[in-house]
């Protein structure tokens, strides 16, 4: 299966199953478009008529182009057949009951009161709670015990607001560091924070121990302060931006990114990304809000079209900044064409409910942070392990081949079947589809690929 698109003045052909990407001119684009259903003579006669008057388009040129397409097909780089369906369940079956990553909900409470919060202001539709050190320690032991031969283990400190349980976070990191050598493991810690409680201790510890920090900022002050307010109704922008700037400056190049959410209020979200760049932040992300369709924050069909144009605007502006020697990154555009994941990972996706789980302050296990708070999604707990094995098997079945709707989608080996939580919230089924999410995803991948083509053409590539 191939996908052709035009963006930024480039004609681009994506060969879905080989992963190949071709930058072509308009004549080659036409040849490739006609190739599957026409003979060489038909292609030549059709295009001689279409490009009559173009001196560079003659019969010899066209036959050479057809030969190039044939050579690419024979080398498996164009019109590659899909031979991967039998591999669909391989990685998760091979992984068995291995768990390699946990999202530790160290705080089901928050010092902000954001109306659009998917976690109902950090409480996940339940009681306020903080995870004890004993529960967190058991979660880390559970992870090590169930990690099999995996060396790299990931622990994300999440909430609510994890800095409201900061001493426990530090104790858990120290405990993990104390056991990782003996256990032959490599812990990677990450932290997601709204920034209000950042101080010098947090900055020093994070910069020493956290491989990445995710900093919540929605962009322009008026956008951020409209929704990210404290319990007195006061915006948080002026309090957190200086703290974020200090933390990022002190990180000295270690991983971080600014993570914003855009809503119906700001589908023109690139203004917010560029504002963050103006504040000195270079690692950026803005994501569409996750909420019920009737919610005032929900994106409308009209918004979705605006957002797609915004993704293009962002890609063009990022290329401009790159040419000027002051690049920024955008989470979804950081594709790695040569060192990216293997076919097994591309098919199997994020691993929620199998190798990745969320742990509540009480030690209950859920498929991921977005399912916490709904009892029917509880997998088990960190003492007994996964007891709802039927539910785990449902998640094990999530992959790029699990949905009939994806059968003719060029992007399925880029999205790996998509986000189970988004599918559930949109359709009521973890194997459903979220059509608006698909539209946005495909546009983002087109933009990311166009940037790679442009970087190559302009000599901007590393």
């Amino acid at each position: 299966m191939i996908h052709q698109f035009e963006l930024g003045g480039y004609h681009i052909v994506v060969d879905s199953c080989s992963g190949s990407i071709h930058s072509v001119d308009e004549v080659a684009a036409d040849v490739i478009g006609l190739y599957p259903d026409h003979t060489e003579d038909e292609i030549v006669s059709t295009l001689l008529a279409r490009y009559a008057g173009r001196p560079d388009v003659n019969e010899a040129e066209l036959r050479e182009c057809v030969a190039d397409v044939t050579a690419l097909k024979e080398s498996g780089q164009l019109f590659a057949p899909d031979t991967f369906a039998p591999l669909a369940g391989y990685l998760k079956a091979k992984s068995g009951d291995i768990v390699k990553a946990l999202c530790l909900h160290v705080a089901h409470t928050c010092n902000l009161n954001c109306s659009y919060c998917f976690a109902s202001q950090g409480k996940y539709h339940g009681e306020r709670a903080l995870m004890s050190f004993e529960t967190g320690k058991r979660a880390l032991d559970f992870l090590v015990e169930h990690s099999g031969t995996r060396r790299n283990l990931e622990v994300d400190f999440f909430g609510g607001e994890p800095l409201m349980n900061w001493d426990v976070v530090k104790e858990l990191v120290r405990y993990a560091r104390a056991i990782e050598k003996e256990k032959g493991k490599n812990f990677r810690f990450t932290l997601t924070t709204n920034g209000l409680l950042i101080d010098d201790d947090v900055i020093d510890f994070c910069n020493r121990e956290m491989s990445n920090v995710v900093l919540s900022l929605d962009g322009r002050k008026e956008i951020h302060d409209a929704l990210r307010v404290d319990y007195a109704g006061n915006g948080s922008y002026d309090r957190i931006v200086p703290k974020f700037q200090k933390l990022v400056q002190a990180r000295g190049g270690k991983g971080y990114y600014m993570r914003g959410t855009f809503t119906h209020r700001n589908p023109d979200f690139t203004k917010d990304l560029f504002h963050m760049a103006d504040l000195g932040f270079t690692e950026l992300s803005m994501e569409p809000v996750v909420c019920a369709p009737g919610d005032p924050a929900a994106l409308t069909d009209e918004d979705i079209e605006t957002v797609k144009k915004e993704y293009e605007t962002l890609a063009f502006d990022m290329l401009r900044r790159e040419r000027e020697g002051r690049p920024i990154t955008f989470y979804h555009y950081m594709i790695d064409l040569t060192g990216g994941p293997c076919i097994y990972k591309r098919i199997s996706g994020c691993g929620s409910g199998t190798e990745y789980m969320a742990v509540t302050p009480w030690g209950d296990l859920y498929p991921c942070h977005q399912f916490v708070g709904e009892e029917k999604w509880k997998l088990g707990d960190i003492w007994q392990g996964v007891t709802n094995t039927e539910l785990r098997e449902r998640f094990r079945g999530c992959n790029a081949y699990a949905r009939e709707e994806c059968a003719d989608c060029w992007a399925r080996l880029w999205c790996s079947g998509g986000c189970a939580a988004n599918a559930y919230h949109a359709s009521g089924d973890i194997r459903g589809v979220y059509p608006a999410g698909c539209e946005l995803f495909k546009k983002r991948i087109e933009c990311a690929i166009m940037m790679k083509v442009a970087e190559e053409a302009e000599g901007l590539a590393e």
Partner: peptide, 30 residues
């Protein structure tokens, strides 16, 4: 003239030969 430029990409078919699961939860192959 060359009307087609192919970017260097990881060969997905070849990657089926060598699924270790060490990559980060979702990206770089490790």
């Amino acid at each position: 003239m060359t009307r087609i430029k192919t970017l260097k990409t990881r060969d997905l078919c070849a990657s089926a030969e060598k699924g270790c699961g060490e990559c980060q939860t979702s990206q770089k192959c490790e």
